[in-house]
């Protein structure tokens, strides 16, 4: 495994037209990199643009501006059959396993559908291949004839992962894939992902609003706020070396089994502003305890402070 960057998002912006001629900016000038065999975690509050961003990664949405280079090729420009073929390399596991499967399809059909779509197996080989995939995600072989709605939440997610694995993609995006699960089940899923990464060298893009979970899993973690990436740093350093006031606030508000129960939980005051009315300057200005006059005028750029650590904050810029 080379751990080289295989996918780079550059200046990716996504805007939606909203009522009264206003624009909703879901992603604003996002620059992120996914490395081979590594996990990129993305955290942030609801509405911060992480889901929108990964939808652009997998080609379900097209960016308003910017490019996404996969092995050097801009995949945002792909259309038709080329786009379809590209799908073999980038797959997704959905958040809601209830909705992610056609209720009329059995597990065997669900997990082998991608292979049939590209003509990689014959219909007669479906059962065998499905069993193979289920084995990879540690599900019993008999489950191939079951319907997803007759399985537990955790098992359903495993099926989702099995489907994503079917085409042997290079990148798998997990869009809040564990949020609906119990904590214990969450951990097991995370273990599975780690195992798969080690065995097959898959890169993951892992989205979650649970910072604690993400940091344990990610090699690089990106923090997003109101469509902007405000900080990127290695996962294991998040607790200790987070610099951006928002990241720190997130850490401070964590409630997990491993936390220090003697420390006070600092919650962030006030609500996040609406992405329709993003103020000029730093997006975090209204809630930041360290807000300066410059912050209201000028939007901070994402700048590399140390190796593998970038921050977008005037406190740390020259």
């Amino acid at each position: 495994m080379s751990h080289e960057p295989i996918l780079t998002a550059r200046h990716v912006t996504k805007q939606f037209p909203a009522a009264n001629g206003r624009l909703l900016t879901a992603c604003d000038d996002v620059n992120l990199t996914v490395c081979q065999g590594r996990t990129l975690g993305i955290v942030g509050e609801s509405g911060c643009g992480k889901s929108t961003f990964v939808k652009m990664l997998v080609g379900l949405l097209a960016p308003t501006e910017g490019e996404i280079l996969f092995h050097g090729d801009d995949i945002t420009k792909l259309k038709g059959e080329a786009l379809r073929q590209n799908r073999r390399k980038i797959q997704m596991v959905f958040q809601d396993a209830w909705a992610a499967f056609n209720p009329k399809m059995r597990v065997v059909d669900i997990v082998t559908e991608p292979l049939l779509n590209f003509g990689l197996i014959r219909r007669s080989e479906r059962a065998a291949k499905a069993q193979e995939l289920l084995e990879m995600v540690h599900l019993p072989k008999e489950y191939i004839d079951r319907y997803p709605h007759s399985m537990s939440g955790g098992q359903r997610q495993r099926v989702g992962i099995a489907r994503a694995l079917a085409l042997e993609p290079e990148i798998i995006v997990c869009d809040e894939a564990t949020c609906a699960l119990d904590v214990s089940v969450q951990d097991r899923i995370v273990e599975l992902l780690v195992e798969l990464q080690q065995k097959k060298g898959i890169s993951f893009v892992f989205i979650c609003h649970d910072v604690a979970l993400v940091q344990s899993l990610s090699h690089q973690m990106a923090v997003m706020y109101l469509g902007n990436v405000v900080e990127v740093l290695p996962g294991h350093l998040v607790g200790t070396e987070a610099l951006h006031p928002y990241t720190q606030a997130l850490i401070g508000a964590i409630f997990s089994t491993r936390m220090d129960f003697t420390k006070k939980i600092e919650s962030i005051e006030s609500e996040a502003p609406s992405p329709l009315d993003v103020p000029a300057g730093c997006p975090f200005q209204n809630r930041c305890g360290h807000c300066m006059e410059r912050c209201r005028r000028e939007k901070p750029k994402l700048v590399e402070i140390e190796q593998h650590h970038e921050v977008a904050c005037h406190l740390f810029s020259r």
């Binding site: 997998v58 080609g59 379900l60 379809r84 073929q85 799908r87 073999r88 797959q91 997704m92 959905f94 809601d96 909705a99 992610a100 499967f101 056609n102 559908e113 991608p114 779509n117 590209f118 489907r163 079917a166 085409l167």
Partner: peptide, 12 residues
């Protein structure tokens, strides 16, 4: 979502 998933997995 499963329609999006179907397209994602390469369904024509």
């Amino acid at each position: 979502e499963y329609l999006a998933a179907a397209r994602l997995t390469g369904s024509r």
